[in-house]
Design a binder for these strands. Sequence first.
DNA 1: TTGAAAGCGCTAACAT
DNA 2: ATGTTAGCGCTTTCAA
Lengths: 337, 337
Amino acid sequence: MAATLHDVALLAGVSIKTVSNVVNDYPHIRPETRARVEAAIAELGYQPNPSARSLRSGRTGLIGLAVPELSLSSYFAELADRMIAAAEQRGLTVLIEQTGGDRQRELDVLRSARRKMTDGLLFSALGMQQDDAELLRQPYPLVLLGERIFGGPTDHVTMHNVEAARTATEHLLRLGRRRIAVVGAHVGEVIGSAGLRLRGYREALEAAGEPYREELIGYAEPWHRADGAEVTRRLIATGEPFDGLFAFNDNLAFGAMRALQEAHIAIPEQVAVLGFDNLDDAAYSVPSLSTVDPGLPEIVETSISLLVERIAGRGPDEPQELMAGYRIVERESTPAR
Amino acid sequence: MAATLHDVALLAGVSIKTVSNVVNDYPHIRPETRARVEAAIAELGYQPNPSARSLRSGRTGLIGLAVPELSLSSYFAELADRMIAAAEQRGLTVLIEQTGGDRQRELDVLRSARRKMTDGLLFSALGMQQDDAELLRQPYPLVLLGERIFGGPTDHVTMHNVEAARTATEHLLRLGRRRIAVVGAHVGEVIGSAGLRLRGYREALEAAGEPYREELIGYAEPWHRADGAEVTRRLIATGEPFDGLFAFNDNLAFGAMRALQEAHIAIPEQVAVLGFDNLDDAAYSVPSLSTVDPGLPEIVETSISLLVERIAGRGPDEPQELMAGYRIVERESTPAR
DNA sequence: TTGAAAGCGCTAACAT
DNA sequence: ATGTTAGCGCTTTCAA
């Protein structure tokens, strides 16, 4: 039914190889030959068969993007959106896989049959742990995203979590807030977004000579709005006073602001709130959310570039670890200085 | 490098065909033969090569999902999330393509080279219009989503937009609101979410004997939070009083609530707000958002089922049009009755 | 119940 | 600058 290289070659009166050369922009072709082939291609509406091409070349032009979920965590929707666009610019197509942030499903993705149809994988892990680092050693190009595993066998794109969290906390301290609640800590976690951000928080308190108060630490997993609201309601219910709140992502912050307002606590007058992610929504919440911008465009560009290099077989022998920059975005949920 | 059917056959001492039969769950195989083959598969870690399989069979196991964008419109992120999960249950993989809601990019998706690597397409159009219906006639299975085109040549999954908008408006009227602003109308649109929802709004006003006031109609395109906020600021600035607000989607409603609160207008006391989509976030905004639930799970299941049937070559000759149910979800942005 | 052979459409290696 | 050939790994058809 659909035209093949053979049909085009027949119509253009050239060999199949010449048509292939035209289709693949091989440089040394006589202009008139090229024109004749292109006319035949247009006449037959020829489109290359990607399966045949992949079978022969070993490349599919597809790259996998494993994320916990597209809804509920807007961060990953924004990540996917930008990743698809950035891949398209390089002639690549993104295949999204959802793991639910579940360790087993993450491991499944690593060895799934889909790995035979993608040239490489961008892997945003949430359930795997530092102990699992060696499981990232796979026979295909893999770029790790996030902060669950460091020093692993693959390229890795992450950000300065500790420093960013320290800066965020310092920001609240500089605004005169002394009792700063946390929303989104994970029990016992050292490595991982929660563990690292909590460390930054502690470092800032220590540097300022403020005590670390366990009673102000709100534990939440996962990091959805509902969790932020629930944890904050509990913090409020303890009666422990606080005048600042650092949520480990924007979703948690939205939920937290919801809980504060239910309790008629004024933001930022009574409690200043700072989030993390700078989601598109952060500018439109009530009040708008001050937050840490993790440099998503940089993360996306860097990770795709690394993957493309690895797919091409280039790049240094050692795994690369690259960190995106960050900055604090001030909005209404923290008072103007 | 990677094991092939041939390697497995050699190791198991059977023919390549027998291995293929085992892999594809062909029923008539002697249990001991099957066991031997399965042992060989396990020993070699054999995984089928999807390109070879597709080249031969003509199927890829991939289906396209074209949406305007994954970020900024959470509705499409939720749609994609559920679609990926529903496809997975059927052994299919979803390939997401973003069109930006732009007509030209939508047309590009219809004829893109990617259509040769998907078995069918779920197509959520926003930029195309009723006039473009015939362009949906394509040589592959296609299921149209949304309300830009009706009576086209393909299966179509949509919802009762007019009725839902009428019910929503009636709900506000029943709450005693008489001057109900609209956020999200499109100039001159008849078919399409905006056009149909505006019609439902008008029908409800007429039935209640209320005048249709052009000065209460807020035009917004696209339907992001920023647009909802901007349009509502303008409506407020006109000084035209209103005590209800119907936003044509939840994102617009979030933006609208933001603008109302900037102007110190109390929700729902002074203005009752009703959205459309029932996004996950709607329960966690401040105030939480009353909205129309468009039955996303039903939309997802229906459209995937239709597509799977068409891919299998089944289904009636005539294109099917299926409508999901809807219901009003009452939250804090409208007063309790 | 299993095997043999053909060929899907393309690219890479080599030849001219 | 263009042609010839082989073969990627699989499923399908036909045969046994």
